[in-house]
Deep mutational scan, measured.
Amino acid sequence: TYYTVKSGDTANKIAAQYGVSVANLRSWNGISGDLIFVGQKLIVKKG
């Protein structure tokens, strides 16, 4: 599943929404920190 980042989103918020850990969200998308951008497409695997 892909999720498009919206204004006000955070890695924590997206992870919680899908029931996954922030560490997994980072791993699936090659993100090292919490910096995400509006319009960015993230791979999300439901927990």
Rank of each mutant, 00 (worst) to 15 (best):
1 T>G: 10
1 T>E: 13
1 T>D: 11
1 T>A: 12
2 Y>G: 04
2 Y>H: 08
2 Y>S: 06
2 Y>Q: 07
3 Y>H: 14
3 Y>S: 01
4 T>E: 09
4 T>F: 10
4 T>Y: 11
5 V>N: 00
5 V>H: 02
6 K>E: 08
6 K>R: 10
7 S>L: 14
7 S>F: 14
8 G>S: 06
9 D>Y: 00
9 D>N: 02
9 D>T: 01
9 D>W: 02
10 T>M: 03
10 T>V: 04
11 A>E: 08
11 A>Q: 11
11 A>R: 01
12 N>C: 14
13 K>R: 09
14 I>L: 05
14 I>T: 01
14 I>N: 00
15 A>V: 02
15 A>S: 06
15 A>I: 03
15 A>T: 02
16 A>H: 10
16 A>F: 09
16 A>V: 09
16 A>E: 13
16 A>L: 12
16 A>K: 12
16 A>I: 11
17 Q>P: 00
17 Q>F: 13
17 Q>R: 12
17 Q>C: 11
17 Q>H: 10
18 Y>R: 02
18 Y>N: 08
18 Y>T: 06
18 Y>V: 07
19 G>D: 08
19 G>F: 06
19 G>Q: 09
19 G>A: 07
20 V>G: 02
20 V>E: 06
20 V>N: 01
20 V>C: 11
20 V>L: 10
21 S>V: 05
21 S>G: 05
21 S>W: 05
21 S>T: 13
22 V>M: 10
22 V>Y: 04
22 V>P: 08
22 V>S: 05
23 A>C: 10
23 A>E: 15
23 A>K: 09
24 N>H: 10
24 N>I: 12
24 N>Y: 07
24 N>L: 14
24 N>F: 07
25 L>S: 00
25 L>V: 04
25 L>K: 00
26 R>W: 11
26 R>D: 05
26 R>F: 15
26 R>H: 09
27 S>C: 13
27 S>F: 12
27 S>K: 14
27 S>T: 13
29 N>G: 03
29 N>A: 02
30 G>V: 07
30 G>W: 07
31 I>D: 04
31 I>T: 05
31 I>C: 08
31 I>M: 13
32 S>L: 13
33 G>L: 14
33 G>F: 09
33 G>Q: 08
33 G>P: 07
33 G>N: 11
34 D>Q: 07
34 D>E: 10
34 D>N: 11
34 D>M: 09
35 L>H: 12
35 L>P: 08
35 L>C: 12
36 I>K: 01
36 I>M: 08
36 I>Y: 05
36 I>W: 06
37 F>M: 09
37 F>D: 07
37 F>H: 11
37 F>T: 10
38 V>H: 05
38 V>N: 05
38 V>L: 08
39 G>F: 05
39 G>N: 06
39 G>K: 02
39 G>S: 04
40 Q>L: 07
40 Q>I: 07
40 Q>R: 06
41 K>G: 05
42 L>F: 02
42 L>K: 01
43 I>A: 05
43 I>K: 07
43 I>H: 06
43 I>V: 10
44 V>L: 08
44 V>M: 05
44 V>W: 02
44 V>H: 01
45 K>L: 11
45 K>E: 10
45 K>Q: 12
45 K>H: 13
45 K>S: 14
46 K>C: 12
47 G>M: 12
47 G>V: 13
